[in-house]
């Protein structure tokens, strides 16, 4: 390819796309109103701001503009501004989203746009919340532990299809929007009992990792509260990386837990073998299945 004719058609296609991008971005600048949460700890409220908005701006741009023009101390957390770091999570018109990936052209600007912090986490100030519980929760999940290397040079072999399976989970950007909408955390505040969807995705990535050698089903059941999830799929809906959290991560983990810890035949086998699970990943099975079929709310 790249004969002159076809690269000419590329340029033409580019011109068309650029023109369309102009239109869809809305070239005219106008004034828009925002209601931004201001406050710290348990006090605060929405405050009104207006700023001029133009081509292709996202909510984070508007917040930065408000900050530069009229509220220099407006607290907001952000980094990459490209949807890759997961820092700027907020509730925009009540919907949990990344501020950097929410274009103003998607919102109804005839009404004020409300921008509020994630509600499931303690407020630090304005749009910034204390998400440290997520980092602590990760420590409770046992770390990646590879099987011995496959090759004498200390390396492993795996197929792309095996890699693909976990790469869906490993693309998580830790924006914690899934934690924010999970009713177990948001409404019932069971942070100590339930690690939440983000950490279950982390656990799924470990459990399905082609090289990992541990079995975490026992701890998922006993310590991480997987039974609390009653698969309402709110987490999946808000994931900016489109990870199919409930179907691909949580449900398969629940099935593994059930297989290992509630299957009466396996239980019998386990008792006869002296409390060892059979086949696959080996590890002393934990818990005695005393608590029935989970603890969903």
């Amino acid at each position: 390819m790249a004969s002159e004719t076809s690269s000419r058609s590329i340029a033409e296609s580019g011109e068309r796309a650029a023109a369309r991008s102009d239109t869809s971005a809305g070239t005219a600048s106008r004034t828009a109103s925002f209601q931004v949460w201001r406050g710290a700890g348990n006090t605060g409220g929405l405050q009104s701001y207006s700023t001029s908005v133009s081509e292709g701006m996202v909510v984070l741009d508007a917040i930065h503009q408000i900050q530069a023009e009229s509220a220099t101390d407006l607290a907001v957390r952000w980094n990459c501004k490209a949807g890759k770091c997961g820092s700027c999570s907020a509730e925009i018109n009540g919907v949990p989203r990344l501020m950097c990936m929410t274009r103003l052209s998607e919102l109804d600007l005839s009404e004020p746009v409300t921008v509020e912090p994630m509600r499931a986490f303690p407020l630090v100030r304005d749009l910034v919340t204390d998400v440290s519980s997520n980092f602590r929760a990760k420590k409770r999940i046992r770390k990646f532990t590879p099987r011995p290397p496959d090759a004498p040079d200390g390396t492993w072999r795996m197929q792309q299809s095996d890699a693909d399976r976990v790469q869906e989970f490993r693309k998580c950007i830790e924006c914690f929007l899934c934690q924010n909408v999970c009713h177990v955390l948001r409404d019932h505040h069971l942070h100590e009992q339930f690690v939440g969807p983000r950490l279950l995705v982390h656990a799924a990535q470990l459990e399905m990792h082609p090289l990992d050698s541990l079995d975490r089903t026992g701890e998922l059941k006993e310590n991480h509260g997987i039974g609390y999830c009653n698969i309402t799929k709110c987490c999946t809906k808000v994931c900016p990386e489109h990870i199919t959290i409930t179907d691909n991560a949580i449900i398969p983990l629940k099935e593994r837990v059930v297989d290992k810890h509630y299957d009466p035949l396996r239980k019998l086998v386990r008792l006869m073998r002296g409390n060892k699970t059979g086949g696959g990943k080996r590890e002393a099975a934990r818990g005695n299945d005393a608590r029935g079929g989970g603890n969903a709310l």
């Binding site: 590879p146 390396t155 072999r157 197929q159 792309q160 890699a163």
Partner: peptide
């Protein structure tokens, strides 16, 4: 290679090595 030992999952070649 050390990153792989720590859990990184790189894309693979047909023979299962790091692409």
């Amino acid at each position: 290679r050390e990153l792989e030992a720590w859990g990184a999952v790189f894309d693979r070649t047909a023979d299962g090595k790091i692409l």
